[in-house]
Amino acid sequence: MLTTSEEDYLKALYTLTEWEDTEVSTGALADQLGLSPASVTSMIQKLSGKGLVNHVPRKTVALSPSGRREALRMVRRHRLLETFLRDELGYGWDEVHDEAEALEHTVSDRFIDALDARLGHPRHDPHGDAIPAADGSLPVSQAVRLDRYTGQRAIIDRISDEDPDFLRRAAAQGLVPGASIELPYQLDYIEASLIWVRGSGSK
């Protein structure tokens, strides 16, 4: 059994590497979790002892195969709960993240599997992020960040859910997963880095 904190660490580590193919330092993980580097280092040592992460002291930390499985289990919970809150309870897509964060540690895997079936086995959450299957598999995405995209026309694939205010502004402009946009689109650099797109001919 993992503690709530351990689950949060594994999910945060996965989130940092899901869309950016970069090495993660304990400092970056501390920033993601809003904790001190010393606290993060202590927890990473604990997770390493359990075989859940691979850690090079003062350098990088990465999920082990067993750590990745646990992280994806939590990601699956989180994204299915977000989808349930929007589709069944009428939450806005800017409201579901924090609520799902609170709920994901309190429900069982059986509940999540039943919720998945009730929702019709959705493949993506309200923000366009892929929902892992029960076996941990994920569909492959060809999406790239909007500020790095070089085409003339694109389809929005996913939008970062870290800033509720940005989600509200994006929705007001029709910038939601599945929407087609012509480029260049008038967004500042920071906002463009929160949107992932794919070419209009790709899936």
Results as ranks from 00 to 15, higher is better:
180 S>K: 12
152 Q>S: 13
91 Y>N: 01
120 G>V: 14
124 H>D: 05
158 R>K: 15
82 E>Q: 15
178 G>T: 02
100 A>G: 08
162 E>T: 05
86 R>K: 15
117 A>C: 06
175 L>T: 02
84 F>H: 06
139 P>H: 10
63 L>S: 05
147 D>A: 07
149 Y>P: 13
71 A>T: 05
122 P>V: 06
131 I>S: 05
165 D>A: 13
121 H>Q: 09
179 A>G: 03
75 V>Q: 08
154 A>M: 11
128 G>R: 01
117 A>K: 12
101 E>K: 13
90 G>D: 05
164 P>G: 02
101 E>C: 04
135 D>P: 04
125 D>F: 03
130 A>R: 05
111 F>P: 00
75 V>L: 09
152 Q>G: 14
122 P>T: 10
150 T>G: 04
177 P>C: 10
97 H>L: 09
74 M>T: 03
86 R>C: 08
99 E>K: 12
173 Q>I: 02
131 I>W: 05
75 V>E: 10
69 R>L: 15
106 T>F: 06
108 S>N: 09
164 P>D: 01
128 G>K: 06
77 R>Q: 03
98 D>Q: 07
118 R>H: 08
165 D>H: 06
150 T>A: 15
147 D>P: 03
65 P>E: 12
172 A>F: 00
70 E>M: 14
132 P>M: 10
97 H>R: 12
78 H>I: 05
72 L>G: 07
98 D>V: 07
140 V>N: 11
64 S>T: 12
180 S>Y: 09
146 L>N: 04
155 I>W: 00
146 L>I: 12
123 R>N: 12
63 L>G: 03
62 A>C: 01
135 D>F: 07
98 D>R: 12
68 R>S: 15
89 L>D: 07
102 A>H: 13
132 P>Q: 06
116 D>V: 02
152 Q>E: 09
153 R>L: 13
73 R>D: 11
129 D>W: 03
101 E>H: 10
148 R>L: 15
76 R>D: 04
144 V>P: 07
161 D>Q: 08
170 A>W: 00
126 P>N: 00
77 R>V: 03
115 L>D: 01
126 P>R: 00
177 P>D: 06
179 A>V: 02
84 F>D: 04
130 A>E: 11
102 A>S: 13
166 F>C: 01
148 R>D: 15
104 E>H: 07
94 D>K: 01
165 D>V: 04
134 A>C: 11
131 I>Q: 10
66 S>R: 15
157 D>F: 03
110 R>E: 14
124 H>F: 14
61 V>Y: 08
100 A>S: 14
161 D>H: 10
158 R>V: 04
112 I>A: 01
63 L>W: 05
154 A>C: 09
175 L>I: 09
66 S>G: 03
128 G>D: 05
160 S>V: 08
136 G>E: 09
135 D>Q: 09
138 L>Q: 14
81 L>G: 01
112 I>G: 00
100 A>F: 10
177 P>V: 04
140 V>M: 12
145 R>F: 15
138 L>S: 10
141 S>Y: 01
114 A>C: 01
